[in-house]
């Protein structure tokens, strides 16, 4: 009984002393390595993302300022692009990386959104199931962009073949709402084509 009591006492005293040592050592570590620890934590947190589901605010168009309220997130689908005359109906994504283009039409992040009154630059693969038939379109055909904030109709008025480096042929401006939709050219090219087939369309509705 006495031994048990002594053992209990020894354990408790050890725990208390160990706690004191812990506090001293933790404080010591904090004083010596505090800055380095903070930097390391900050570094790790910069490569961390919040995976909790974010509430996505609905995209709206401010008609007075011709500007979107709550832009869609990069890489997400925000509408559909339809060309009835050649049977094209594809999801429209914000962004135009190869991975986005493999899902549908990509909207270049450096251009304006439908309704904002400027150049809208969109791209798609010339693969079947994508915009393979874009070459079949004619002047006067209608390209429709359906978004959750409105539907926009554009009438094709021109098309041309350009070099991939001829960026002046797809100018980004804010004076007039123009949709420029392009795909790789020539149609049967093998490899990384260096030309693009672009159709130009004016906003009509």
């Amino acid at each position: 009984m006495k031994a048990m009591k002594k053992s209990f006492k020894a354990t408790i005293s050890n725990l208390i002393v160990a706690l004191i040592y812990t506090v001293v050592i933790v404080l010591l570590i904090y004083v010596i390595f505090g800055n380095q620890i903070s930097v390391a934590m900050a570094l790790v947190n910069t490569i961390s993302i919040d995976k909790t589901q974010k509430v996505v605010e609905e995209t709206k168009l401010d008609l007075n300022n011709m500007k979107l309220i709550n832009y869609p997130e990069y890489g997400t689908q925000y509408g559909r692009l339809i060309i009835e005359s050649v049977d094209i109906d594809l999801p429209l994504y914000f962004g135009d990386t190869l991975s986005i283009l493999s899902k549908g039409i990509g909207h270049s992040s450096g251009s304006y959104f439908p309704g904002e009154g400027g150049s809208i630059l969109c791209a798609g693969h010339n693969y079947r199931g994508y915009i393979y038939d874009l070459y079949e379109t004619k002047n006067g055909d209608i390209i429709t962009i359906e978004t959750n904030y409105g539907t926009f109709n554009y009438e094709i008025y021109d098309s041309q073949i350009i070099k991939e480096t001829e960026l002046d042929k797809v100018p980004i401006q804010k004076e007039k709402e123009i949709l420029m939709l392009y795909t790789c050219y020539p149609l049967d090219a093998i490899g990384h084509p260096t030309e693009r087939f672009v159709v130009y369309a004016n906003l009509v509705e």
Partner: peptide, 15 residues
């Protein structure tokens, strides 16, 4: 598979 597909789609080869 995804990355190759993204490149193949613009290459004229079959997916």
């Amino acid at each position: 598979r995804e990355s190759f597909k993204s490149n193949i789609l613009q290459s004229g080869l079959e997916e």
